[in-house]
Design a protein around this nucleic acid. Structure first.
Lengths: 222, 222
DNA sequence: ACGTTATTCCAAAGATCTTTGGAGGAACGA
DNA sequence: TCGTTCCTCCAAAGATCTTTGGAATAACGT
């Protein structure tokens, strides 16, 4: 019957939907969107039990949303393709547009009272700035995520180390900061911190996830 | 704490993900992607209980993915925006690319043995054909879905009535058939049926869903 | 071979989701 | 106002998902 086959199709598509339907798994996808990670590393970063992470990864794997690579006793997970990151991106966009809660939560989270909104640097602007070698791009994510993939030429200054690096950044302005994605607060905080120190700093629109899903070049390695 | 707020964000996004995570709800979204529908109509079309449909619609509503309009005692549901249809579209695409099962199920479903694949008409091709008034576009969906939105100038011939209409289609060729979307088999069957009757017929790539999400014009009404 | 490390598999308890039947509410026409 | 239609709300049973701890597996170094 048609309805049978159709039902089966929806079941299959539902596997993909279901994979995105758990907050925990979304958190894992967000991390994986930054680059490869081992199970243990995901467990630490997401603050969830190892067995639990493994189970969630199996769900993602069953939906073919992630791929694995073995290296010794470790297994590295990564998103299975750009289309997966794009789907995640699309879901964030819809959630943000459709849900007042997400929007409000995000605004409350990002707009610390008393700080005026900084003007963003668009991806295209940054691309042409990079061509003219006309900006210092700072990646404020942890070393691990930077190593997994970053904007070509970007310097990695994890947010925790930013205070100590202020003076070295003072020389080359403007500083363009970025982190994971639209939902990552570290770049906001970084721009605020640098501004407070008198360093001219701006923020890249969104972050690494969107940089990647919009097809811009990515450099890998420490 | 950052992790608390972040967790809350993922919870909110998870509501959207979860809404897409059930095969039944995906089926409802597919129907709604065609246009407005009442609860009872959805129940009939999807072959699921009324209470169940209502419950699923509440889940979609909670995620702000659907909007409602009251008309007398009836309540009409529709997708809350194009971005929702686009997200559904993106999910189908990923499912198709990532899951061999979906691909295989789809192929087995669409490619009836012994029928060669017909050449598709792209959306852009059709657009210019329409400008030159150079094709008869046939919408093979049920009257209800046609009325909710169709390609401007298309003639509605529900698939069940196609056999009786063959002769009236024979005069104006080529015939371009379409139905709901990439997963809708009626357009495939229609082209096959017409071909068997000696009528030159081609199929529009994908269907109404993708026509809409790619920003092409839509005409409403019977 | 053996112990170690990283991960998956398994099973059970707990949490959450889905379906169903029946009651309740809102609009309509007589 | 009453009965009808269409839908939502509620509650309980059944199904499915998630987490957890412990056992099994796979690769590695000694």
């Amino acid at each position: 019957m048609q309805s049978d086959r159709k039902g089966h199709l929806f079941d299959q598509v539902g596997v993909v939907g279901k994979a995105f339907g758990s907050p925990r798994r979304l958190q894992l996808v967000e991390l994986l969107a930054q680059g490869e990670r081992t199970v243990e590393s995901l467990s630490r970063a997401a603050g969830m039990g190892l067995n639990s992470v493994s189970a969630h990864l199996q769900v993602l794997k069953l939906a073919n949303l992630v791929a694995t690579r073995r290296e010794g006793t470790r297994i590295h997970y990564r998103l299975a393709g750009d289309d997966v990151a794009q789907l995640y991106d699309a879901m964030l966009t819809v959630a943000r547009q459709r849900s007042a809660d997400v929007g409000k939560a995000l605004d409350a989270y990002l707009n610390v009272p008393g700080s005026e909104e900084v003007e963003l640097v668009t991806r295209d602007e940054l691309t042409s700035m990079l061509k003219r070698d006309n900006a210092l791009v700072v990646d404020v994510r942890p070393r691990e995520e930077y190593a997994a993939g970053h904007i070509p030429g970007a310097r990695n200054v994890p947010f925790e180390e930013l205070t100590g690096a202020v003076d070295s950044l003072r020389l080359t302005t403007p500083v363009i900061a970025y982190c994971r994605g639209a939902y990552c607060v570290m770049a906001h905080d970084a721009v605020r911190l640098l501004g407070g120190e008198g360093v001219i700093a701006r923020r890249l629109e969104d972050g690494m996830l969107e940089w990647r899903t919009h097809g811009h070049p990515v450099e890998v390695g420490a």
